[in-house]
């Protein structure tokens, strides 16, 4: 069945702040009048493991999860995680990735190797990969923890939702003391 549901995956390493990113996106899309589903995983995998959040929106959304080859966007907080979930991307989808490497335990203890040129490999396969130093930009904005909002700023570039609506959503979803730094982070991601 033809389905006009749009799919965004937010992936990263447990503890990187992907839940705030999905909360922001979910609230914004709800305000825009879409039917929205957001699926998260809590518990064990949050302890430094690979984490994935699904955000789906459209006229009527059924499944809360995104299967292989279905994602319009993959927003990744880390390079290896972008590659891990690349198979979920539609052929014409876009990967937005924080070009940071975080070694997983098998690499730390020498049982596996981190494929450092993994983003080039994905590009070589014809996938659209927009890699930015989101962590660096977040530090520039005043707090490395706003990496998630830098990435949301980057994602916003590809969305046809007005810039101001994103800023409004940030003001609503973020604690007052962090609003300024997150707006700065959003701008840096958007204008990168």
């Amino acid at each position: 069945m033809a389905n006009n549901t749009k799919n965004v995956m937010i992936v990263g390493v447990g503890g990187q702040g992907s839940l705030l990113a999905s909360k922001l996106l979910g609230a914004l899309l709800t305000d825009e009048g879409y039917d929205v589903k957001v699926s998260e995983v809590h518990g064990m995998s949050q302890r430094g493991g690979s984490v994935v959040t699904y955000v789906r929106y459209g006229e009527k959304v059924y499944s809360p999860i995104i299967a292989e080859g279905e994602a319009d966007f993959i927003v990744s907080f880390e390079k290896l995680e972008a590659a891990r979930y690349a198979g979920c991307l539609r052929k014409d989808g876009k990967i937005i990735v924080n070009a940071q490497s975080i070694d997983p335990m098998p690499v730390i203890i020498g049982n596996a190797t981190y494929p450092e040129d993994i983003l080039d490999e994905l590009k070589g396969k014809g996938l659209f990969v927009d890699d930015i130093d989101a962590y660096g930009l977040a530090v520039e904005a005043g707090n490395g923890k706003s990496t998630n909002i830098v990435l949301m700023g980057r994602l916003a570039k590809y969305f046809d939702i007005p810039y101001d609506k994103w800023i409004e959503a940030i003001k609503k979803q973020v604690k007052p003391q962090f609003v300024d730094v997150n707006i700065k982070a959003f701008e840096l991601g958007y204008n990168f």
Binding site: M44, Q46, R47, A83, P115
Partner: peptide, 12 residues
């Protein structure tokens, strides 16, 4: 479309 490189696991 997937990467050919082996992607190391990232267990919790």
């Amino acid at each position: 479309i997937k990467a050919d490189s082996e992607i190391p696991m990232r267990p919790p």
